[in-house]
Amino acid sequence: MTMRPWAIAALVAVLLFLLGPFLIIVGAGLSAGETLTFPPEGLSLRWVWAVLQVDTLRHAFAISFSLAVLSTLGALALGIPAAYALERLDPPGAGAIRALVTAPLVVPGIVVGLALLRYFVIPLGIGIRPALLMSHTALLVPYTVRVVAASLRNLRVDIEEAAILLGASPLTAFVSVVMPNIRNGIVAAFILSFITSFNQVPVSLFLAGPGVSTLPIEMLARIDFTYDPSIAALSALLALLSIAIVFVAERLLGLSRYV
């Protein structure tokens, strides 16, 4: 096919629109000046260094990171069996369950946060940390179900049936035949869920409490009263972290297929 120059030009423009702001935030974060500006007033790592010294941000990072890993594992534990059942076992009520587990995708986060705080966390007397963990897990289940189901769909059924015919129990067949073959799907689900939880704002906004705050919430709060480039520097750091993850994931398993 012929490459049409205008198509390429349009593509470059779209990419610039998508990635330009990110480049700007990196530039602003590397500024040597006192205030947030672009182009930056000279280059330095001083704000990157400064932002790493802030206790509350470090603590919030630890909370966000551990929350993201734990809720992702929880969502995988719930999602993998459900995806397998939906794809292979044709259970009664599959349609309803499919709709149910994908529901968190269409409901606005603010609403979820409010509903969970008022009618789940407070009536049941759930602590702040378990509440955050449970809400994030519920939010991530749709992602794990969808991605794992998609990779199961690409896996031929007969391998597994062969294993069962040869005398393996369904569980053994799943662990030794199915699991290795959908490993990429599971890893993709893990990365997608991790990033979704790590960047989550509205739900956590309602459920966070004394001593427990997540990184994006702390960032939003600091944007309200800091005018220096420190949050830009932090944004740049986080973005670089994401890029590293995405690059590795794309190389290894073509993550974008699952988004």
Binding site: L18, F198, P216, L220, S235, I243, V246, E250, L255, V259
Partner: peptide
């Protein structure tokens, strides 16, 4: 990959720009 990238970056950071 480049198109996927922004999805992975925190919306707070992206909007701040």
């Amino acid at each position: 990959g480049l198109v996927t990238l922004p999805i992975m970056i925190s919306p707070v950071a992206r909007t701040y720009a």
